[in-house]
Simulated assay, not measured.
Amino acid sequence: MKGCRVQASSSRSLLRYASARPGCPKLLCFPYAGGVAAGYRNWAVALSPHVDVVAVEYPGRGFRRREQLSRRIVDLVQAIIPEIVAEMTGPIILFGHSMGALVAFEVLRVLSPRQPVVAAVMSGCRPPVLRGFEPEIHALPDDEFIEELRKLDGTPEELLADRDLMELAMPVLRADFEAVATYDPPKALKLSCPVLVYGGESDNSVGVEELEGWREHAAVSCAITAFPGNHFFVRSAEQDVLSTLRRDIRSLTAV
């Protein structure tokens, strides 16, 4: 893509784009279940040159596809923290969608005492304070598992209908859904930076009213924005999301 190239890095987990100016705020992005770091390439183009987009690649997919899949949020976090500390300096904003928000939440818990975080954007995710028993859809037979994916309305129907492709995709998806189902966070934790919450107005898995629960985790401030669309509004309403994100970053960092 013109104007956006991958910047060389010693990190095995961070995909970094070199289209932003030096010293600008860094947006550290955590993918949803089954997602890959390259999914944030468009964001790097849209937010440059004022925001440096850095995307996390989980093991077992993308350029880490030969690595063993992780089935616990805590394992993902423990592996990525040293690389974040080593690779990233200056103001950092965390963004995570769905499962990515849970990973970002845990990263913030560990990272904030060591390195200042400007804000955390929690997108399409029920807050830890409201989390209870999570359905273990990762253990369902293939047909039932695919039907659950279909309900989320985020996987293209042509992929869901292609058994050969789904055979390749399901191990990653099952591992990620298991990580979400087994996640057991501290429900009383207060985050030490402003919290921005994004949600889909028609999201059947995370209601807009449930997003209000993020206020229980906000020690500084919490602002909630609803976008048109379902659980994957970050794709269907991408331009609106990026416009809002650009505005929010500007207000937080004066860039």
Rank of each mutant, 00 (worst) to 15 (best):
G200A: 12
F63G: 05
L15F: 05
V54E: 08
E209Y: 06
A101R: 04
I146N: 00
G132Q: 13
A254S: 14
L149V: 04
P127F: 08
P116Y: 02
L168D: 07
A18K: 01
Y198T: 05
A237W: 07
R64A: 06
I137V: 15
A120Y: 12
P228C: 01
E167H: 12
A169L: 15
D248L: 07
L152Y: 10
V85L: 14
D162F: 02
F105H: 14
A120G: 11
G60H: 02
S251F: 07
D52L: 02
P186C: 13
R71D: 12
Y183K: 06
P135Q: 07
A181W: 13
A79H: 00
E67V: 06
L245T: 11
S123F: 10
V45P: 05
E147I: 01
V129Y: 06
C4T: 15
A237G: 07
L69Q: 11
Q68S: 15
A37N: 03
Y40G: 00
E209R: 12
A139S: 15
G35R: 05
P25L: 02
R246S: 15
T89D: 11
V206H: 05
Y32P: 01
N42F: 05
R64D: 03
T89E: 09
G213P: 11
D203V: 13
A46H: 01
G154W: 01
Q68R: 14
G124K: 08
V220Y: 06
A86K: 11
L108A: 15
G213C: 12
R21C: 04
A33F: 01
V180N: 01
V180W: 00
E201I: 09
E178T: 10
G154H: 05
M88R: 01
P49M: 02
Y40E: 03
A181K: 09
G199H: 06
Y17I: 02
L47T: 08
V110P: 03
I73F: 04
L152P: 02
L111N: 05
V117H: 06
E83S: 02
P127G: 10
E212D: 14
R12Q: 13
S202I: 02
A20K: 08
R41H: 12
V208C: 07
A175N: 03
R235F: 06
G124F: 10
A20Q: 03
S112A: 15
S251I: 09
I224W: 03
A18Q: 09
F95W: 04
S123W: 09
R65V: 11
Y183S: 08
G100D: 08
S205Q: 13
V220E: 07
V255N: 12
G23D: 04
L168E: 05
F145T: 01
G213M: 04
R61L: 11
R21F: 01
P128M: 12
P31Y: 01
V74S: 14
V121Y: 15
G213E: 08
K151C: 11
G199D: 04
F145I: 00
F30V: 00
P49G: 08
P127C: 10
L189K: 03
L242W: 08
A219I: 06
G3A: 07
A226C: 14
R16F: 07
E106T: 06
P31A: 01
D248P: 09
S11Y: 10
V234Y: 03
R64Y: 06
E148K: 11
